[in-house]
Amino acid sequence: MKSTRDGYGEMIVELAKKNKSIVALSADLTPSVRLENFKKKFPERFFQCGVAEANMIGMAAGLALDGKIPFVSSFAVFVPNRCLDHIRQSVCYTDANVKIVSTHAGVITGPDGATHQALEDIAVMRALPNMKVVVPCDFDQAKKAVKAITKTKGPVYVRLTRPKTPGLPKQSFKIGKANVLRKGKDVTIIACGPIVYEALEAGKKVNATVINCHTLDPIDKATIVKYAKKSKKIVTIEDHQIRGGLGGAIAELLGENHPVKLKRIGADGFGESGSPEELKKKFGLTVSNITRTCRLKK
């Protein structure tokens, strides 16, 4: 088991060896966001910004507008939420090539409590024009995602997580192309982030199709609609507020293109201190609840 943030820390160093345009910025969270190695290997390309996230975003925009590929990292509660206006105007409005890679998303952040568990970041970032939103499911996918976004011009948000989580079967990664992990009957489960693991386990139990929808924007309309047409019911699951995230995106998409019975599983309210397992249980982010929801007649 490895964390998605570890995948980022490994891949950015690998990429930066060849690509001299890559720079990294941290707001006093260098070890936590896994930029410690980058800082050691490329000190001249690493910028410590202090606990001042808004300026960090502006600095990244300035670096990007003059040709660099800045990776900005903090906890997902601070970036994007704390400095949303800077992301909107300085980054998105000019389509600046800034990569925002935030860690510690979701209730699985655990003991730090609700202040440090970002549950609104997907909704916020999905709403911004020009911003791509990527949520890798495991260590390997985080690495592939970081590589892919480096090659893509323009702003991208990558949502990463703190704890070590299970690795899923190896998947290809293309921005905007959802991965179908298994094909089943009647029900399709759509998930993003490390909770894809639970989705897959539940899918095996109820013989459901399971889709890893790692890109929330642009969302893979073709794949989602294709499997909605084959299903009597869709179940979404995410470690995020139930409003505005993955479930919201799927509801928007299917509401317009192929209305079908939909059940959304996600957080509804603030988290609290506890272990990732306890907190997942609090919001029904468990194999048993996904299984139960798939089997519900309604």
Partner: peptide
């Protein structure tokens, strides 16, 4: 740059100087 919301161009300028 895009400016209008205050306190942002100054940050971008720092990034361009770097």
């Amino acid at each position: 740059a895009a400016t209008g919301s205050l306190g942002q161009g100054v940050c971008i300028a720092v990034g361009m100087a770097l």
